[in-house]
């Protein structure tokens, strides 16, 4: 089933239309994984599921600031989009509690990239 250019554009438009409003991206390259991204990703997905939220948690490549891995980018309606660096389990829980639910930024972990 060869793809045509029309198929490609259709798939592009469909995927773009499905783009979720609220998302969290976890840096999941070797640098992130080595720094503990798996644990962070697991906490975030579990919490999102447990709270039954309209929130996509996805794995991504490395954004570049490897010294601050694991890096997590959070985009929630009603709060600014920010990067959190050096995230561990506790910080991941705080991101869900404070940023995602209360729309308040988590202190001491924000990195501007």
């Amino acid at each position: 089933m060869a793809m045509t250019r029309d198929d490609l554009n259709k798939l592009k438009a469909e995927t773009q239309a499905k783009e979720p409003k609220n998302w969290i991206r976890v840096g999941y390259s070797t640098c992130g994984v080595a720094a503990g991204a798996k644990e962070v990703f697991d906490v975030l997905t579990e919490e999102a599921k447990a709270r039954n939220m309209d929130l996509l948690v996805k794995k991504c490549g490395c954004v570049g600031l490897c010294s601050a891995e694991p890096l997590v980018e959070v985009n929630i309606e009603g709060a600014p989009r920010v990067f959190y660096g050096k995230v561990n389990k506790e910080v991941a829980h705080r991101i869900m509690d404070e940023h995602v639910c209360q729309k308040k930024l988590v202190e001491n972990h924000i990195y501007e990239i």
């Binding site: 798939l11 995927t15 783009e19 390259s29 991504c60 490549g61 490395c62 980018e73």
Partner: peptide
């Protein structure tokens, strides 16, 4: 351009 933005394991994401 896409590093840290799209899911490397999703072709749909890349196409989008």
């Amino acid at each position: 351009r896409h590093c840290g933005i799209l899911d490397p394991e999703s072709i749909e994401d890349y196409i989008a």
